[in-house]
Design a protein around this nucleic acid. Sequence first.
DNA 1: AAGACGAAAGTGGTTGA
DNA 2: TCAACAACTTTCGTCTT
Length: 250
Amino acid sequence: MRTRTGVPVTYAIHDKGLTTIISSKDKDYHGKSISQKTRAWFFRLRRWQKRIRASNASEKNLAFALGEIDRMSSALGLPKSIREVAAIIYRKALAKNLIKGRCIEAVAAAALYAACREANIPRTLDEIAAVSRIKKKEVGRTYKYIAKKIGLIMKPVSPLDYIPRFCNMLNLNGSVQERAIEIVKRAEERELISGKAPIGIAASAIYIATIMCGEKRTQKEITEITGVTEVTLRNRYKELCNKLGSDLLP
DNA sequence: AAGACGAAAGTGGTTGA
DNA sequence: TCAACAACTTTCGTCTT
């Protein structure tokens, strides 16, 4: 019994595809041609229908995106100001037609990532990806794309921006944090930083600091919080120890 | 047994011809 | 546009505590 079931319902379209489409054939119900005047009337109806559908859909999309930004921000415990900035970035992307061909959630996630970075309270791509349905890779790619198109200044993240937060998450006291910051600053002076991933530097600086302050955490504990691998942590840590040498000491 | 180590192969992005 | 390259990840076997 498959007769008279109509077009499949889809959730991909905001009205689930159930809207009546005003036919573009200028015929009446019996297939006869219709008058000039009626034809003009239908033309206008069709035009309005298109407009209304389009605006409803894009409004819903915008509402959805902003809702997502809000949801993700809450999940990450970000301040309201960040959400505002993220929303503005999203709207800019929208205005420049950058959403086309990308999923809304990805752009929303990218906007949030960008907003955090701008405010110097960066979240890692891992953290953003964890509260969205988008993979880390995709968030990063989308971020890069929209940042470039919108002309956001993309200054590299400093490892320093991650340290207080990571230290808190690891329940480390202030002196360890100070130590870690000091280590990063010295590494920065010696230009051991550029080209390396900031979280890797941050993670290894914290690792070294915990050992120096007698509050040692295992590599695993640190990599779990920071999201870098143990191998990378080791590489950075070895490098810092070698190249900084006695400069590590207070 | 857990933690630390490092080799080897794979991934995604940047750069330079 | 393509190949070389550096940084990072994954996986896994080995050494150290």
